[in-house]
Design a protein around this nucleic acid. Sequence first.
DNA 1: CTAGGGTTAG
Length: 846
Amino acid sequence: MAAMLQLSPLVSATPSFIAPTNQNEPKAIAKDTSPTGSLRNCKTINQVKQLHCHITKTGFSHTPSNVTKLISACAEMGTFESLDYARKAFNLFLEEEETKGVLFMYNSLIRGYSSAGLCDEAIGLYVQMVLQGVLPDKFTFPFALSACSKIVAFCEGVQLHGSLVKTGLEEDVFIGNSLIHFYAECGHLDYAQKVFDEMLERNIVSWTSLICGYGRRNMPKQAVSLFFEMVAAGVKPNSVTMVCVISACAKLKDVALSERVCAYIGESGLKTNMLMVNSLVDMYMKCGATDAAKWLFDECVDKNLVLYNTILSNYVRQGLASEAVSVVGEMLQQGLRPDKVTMLAAISACAQLSDSLSGKCCHGYVLRNGLEGWDTICNAMIDMYMKCGEQEMACIIFDNMSNKTVVSWNSLISGFIRSGDVKSAWEIFNEMPKSDLVSWNTMIGALVQESKFEEAIELFREMQTEGIKGDRVTMVEVASACGYLGALDLAKWTHAYIEKSEIKCDTRLGTALVDMFAKCGDPQSAMKVFNTMAGRDVSAWTAAIRAMAMEGNGKRALELFDDMLKQGVKPDEVVFVAVLTACSHVGLLEQGRNIFMSMQLVHGISPHIVHYGCMVDLLGRAGLLEEAVDLIKCMPMEPNDVIWGTLLAACRTHKNVEMATYAAEQISKLTTQRTGIHVLLSNIYASAGKWADVAKVRLQLKERGIQKVPGSSSIEVNGVIHEFTSGGDTDTHTERSHIALMLQEINSRLRDAGYIPDLDNVLVDVDEKEKEYLLSRHSEKVAIAFGLIGTGQGVPIRVVKNLRMCSDCHSFAKLVSRIYDREIIVRDNNRFHFFSQGLCSCSDYW
DNA sequence: CTAGGGTTAG
């Protein structure tokens, strides 16, 4: 403390710390008759210095009253320089004088430091004053507490609370309000509420502080109900209260509730000020009432920078980048200077539009205005350059950052993943000093994107051992991985994990869970999740409809679609794909036709080529190949390889080689072709025994370097996923001899029951014996055999196959389900087959 | 003396 007091040497006439004054400063002294009194009129620190110098020369005495005036003038300015000047004058005074009158100086300085954000200084000064034996008063505590609130200095604030209880000041309403604010800012709403409850006297600030506290701690419901409680208690809100409660409404995204709250603006006769307009615009934007927000915004005559920034950030958040760009234009026209918040939004808009030219303009503006010191700005630029495909530029910014945050690293990682450079992403992920939840989520998401589902789950486990808990985003990725794997036990575990960890299941996660259970062949669980979901949007309904479609329950899928329409959910393109797929899976021909017609006529949605594909599939599967071709011919767009491929698949089902050849000819005219189509065509020729044509197609495949995707089936046994590839990969499996024996046993029991292998399904030209052998090694058969070994009686066998199941395997599974009295569920690449007692849920229509 | 607006990555 002594050292602190000796910071400045004792000076008599002119204080040594007075900097040379700027003679061009407006003269505050000019009309002055009482020199010390005019200190408070000073607008700049140089005026103060000049005046101070002047009155020191003319016999200024360092009386408590004079020094207090000097200090409060400086503290009021709140600049580092003015505070420094005040502090030095104060220290000087402390050395000359006793403690008389020093309390006011402490109060002014603590307030100055606190409002300038120099909170540590403010708290330090409070400590100094107590050590010096100066008793804080009812003004000291609010200043000191506000400093503690700003830097979330919980322990210090609690000590202050303790001391003020001793001084008996806790009944003061200002102090109570400061305590509420302090505890709320520290996240202890329980303590804030307790202070509020125990207050003997409350005013509007008490209510507002608590409402604001709840709102900011993401408890907007409590904030709004406290507001209604306040109104019911007869307390009138003021504009600050309204700003707080409106921002809570924005978080709830509830327009109706917001309107109820806003009714009090009129009722209280409150004049709307700039801050209120701003919070209203923000609220309407966040509630999705963009038109209302824009109307208010346009009505406002003297828009300020913050209002522009509000609408701008919201446009960017909603992905309306071009709207944002036009707002920036308007703003520049009004002569407003973009600040760092504006630039943040502008840079994000450039990122969304992949507009590196405008992005570079923003970059230039940032450099010219010295905004590159803000890490958020640099992070946004990294993201922008990455999204514009300029990795080098992003890396330069990253390398030049002196204060890299975890967001900087994460922006680089996600940028590399987006550009397909997963290797670099991994390097950064492993290299970064501190990874957070977002980093892990990004990497897990990348693995899911790469179809490395087991690795994704593995990384999720690793993340937990690192002590990082998953959130909604993590679980959406994990659920999606489970779905692709078709691993029901893992899926159940994931669902339980979400419930146990109290992860809030929002619409997105709920939808992911419905999809997961559907893909794992558990439509009951899928529907259970769906039925408990709160805000079901069109994608949630789509997931449920798809679940029913995959199960082959076309009727229920259509019922769900009807329910959705009845509940007023607007259908989109995607849901029609699910509904039409459901129709084609069970051959609901008329319903499918009607729904397809209703798309344009009732819902105003023009069918996309995908929807035509669904119709071709529906007609083709039903054997109406001619009608399918007619539909293709009158499509408003050029048919692509998928359309012809769908027709080709139908030709295979109905063994129409002639039309298959026609479809194949059409495909060969197209420049873009998928692998699957060639394989399909060669399979059709193979089934028909046209081995010369098969060879031709195979040669084409080889020439283009296209490889046939090998059939592969997986099955989860005791939490481990076993994968079998068609054509003898069982050799690598540890249970290979068991599986081979089991397959032999199954085949002989099936043969006794009258099973004859359908050799049409073997697509290579070999002798009968060899065909039979190859057929018996289809991956789903191997997986079923392994399932029979590895699981107990009564446990359903669940197999996931990457390709469409062949008809021989289908008959095989039906028979096994009867002879071994087991439920078998096979998910192929687009639907499920539930085998039980010799029958399949698809009634052999698939 | 106490309460209030806009902020990047998954």
